[in-house]
Design a protein around this nucleic acid. Structure first.
Ligand code: FES
Ligand code: FES
Lengths: 143, 143
DNA sequence: TTATCTGATATCAATATAGTATCAGTTTAT
DNA sequence: ATAAACTGATACTATATTGATATCAGATAA
């Protein structure tokens, strides 16, 4: 079971790179090369990130993409939901005889707790927090 | 993002039903009808459950399937791993420049914590515990 | 000795994921 | 002005995963 698809993984990596490049536009090409993300795939992905409001673009030569909101406000949970849909254990696990009434289904309740835990964790993690950790382990490169 | 596939869902429901039917063999047909699981799909699934050691079968008329181990020992985690593979966030999330060295990658470390949480939760839940809850909410049917 | 079952296997359909290609239009630099 | 470096938009293909069917042989019970 894979929790993050490639697309989400790519999105996170691209956003991290964009978050790290303060004020400069990065081209899809640059991100693709640096992060080993298939170019055309990334192109599409970046457009989605624009629609989601995470980045803005500038057309033409020397154009590219720039992050457009505080990295601390971009939560991994948002990205997962955008690219993979809401985290849900299963549409509705126990039907018919087993589950008399959906409303007070205890099993459902129990299983849904897991969803909450997962969601909380992914909500906690932001592009900002990831970047922070990255810098910490890499050490500040001599500016 | 769907945590449980239909197959895992079906497996859990089938096992619950088998666990509830003490000592009697249940036919695939009976389970299929009761649980709304496509018959042939269930057939294959039951064979897998045999290979996994969770159930045994009896051929011929009046044959069927019977649970073969303590429901408390059948963990949802086992089932997920059998049918969907191990829970893993992504093969390896941050590569190349971003992640200098895999060994001490903090991001990886952080993200893997989530895997652990999920795994722990699913390890806690067994067919036995689910059945227990089921009986509790349904009330013991007049024996 | 037939109806009711499982064993084993093959095949197919639907969906989701991953990746590629193309062309039009915008901007910068020369 | 015009070529080079870019994005916007969209269509397409490939691959993998998941979900579902179909078939036939063989076992068992009534
Ligand atoms: S899980 Fe859907 S009614 Fe209980
Ligand atoms: S996640 Fe793979 S090296 Fe950091």
């Amino acid at each position: 079971m894979k929790v993050l698809t490639k697309k989400t993984d790519y999105a996170i990596r691209a956003l991290l790179m964009l978050a790290a490049s303060n004020g400069r536009y990065l081209s899809a090409k640059a991100i693709s090369d640096e992060q080993d993300i298939p170019y055309q795939f990334l192109r599409g992905l970046l457009q989605e990130l624009i629609r989601l409001g995470h980045v803005v673009s500038k057309e033409g030569a020397r154009g590219g993409f720039m992050i457009s909101r505080d990295p601390d406000e971009i939560r991994v949970k948002q990205l997962i939901e955008a690219f993979q849909g809401k985290v849900q254990v299963s549409e509705c696990m126990f039907r018919k005889q087993i589950c008399a009434n959906r409303a007070k289904c205890v099993l459902r309740h129990e299983i849904m707790r897991i969803e909450e835990v997962v969601n909380n964790e992914f909500e906690r993690i932001t592009i900002g927090s990831l970047l922070h950790n990255l810098k910490r382990i890499q050490g500040q490169p001599p500016a």
